[in-house]
């Protein structure tokens, strides 16, 4: 029963209750009061509107903080990203040039071997 009362309180705004002081507020309170002592406690606090009002408001920003004064964990250094980008470019290009060179070398070797085999075959 207490759980039901809590659910009603939580979903009261969705069920047509539009803010504190509206007719819906009393509907929600009626449901809650029927839930026993715990329901009375919740209802006496004024329902969801009061519960929301009791949450601390988000802190307002009243100053600008220079980026170099940010705590270390919030700063994102640019140099490692830059170095990573340029390193990747160099490595990728180098790897590709080496790969093409090796493939070309292998084909050339095979051609030479085949030519020598053909010559030998022609002689015999």
């Amino acid at each position: 029963m207490i759980r039901l009362a809590l659910l009603v309180v939580m979903f009261a705004p969705i069920l047509g209750v539009r803010g504190a002081g509206a007719a819906g507020d009393s509907v929600a309170s009626t449901f809650v009061r029927g839930a026993g002592p715990a329901g009375d406690l919740i209802a006496s606090t004024g329902g969801p509107a009061v519960m929301l009002a009791q949450q601390p408001p988000p802190q307002q920003q009243d100053e600008f903080i220079p980026i170099d004064e940010l705590p270390a964990q919030d700063q994102l250094p640019a140099a490692p990203l830059l170095v990573a980008a340029y390193s990747f470019v160099v490595l990728a290009l180098f790897a590709y040039v080496v790969s093409v060179g090796r493939r070309l070398g292998r084909v050339q070797q095979e051609m030479e071997r085949l030519e020598s085999d053909l010559k030998r075959g022609g002689r015999t």
Binding site: L82, A85, F88, V89
Partner: peptide
Amino acid sequence: AITLVTGPLW
């Protein structure tokens, strides 16, 4: 590959 790696790093 170079484009798709350097872009996210930036």
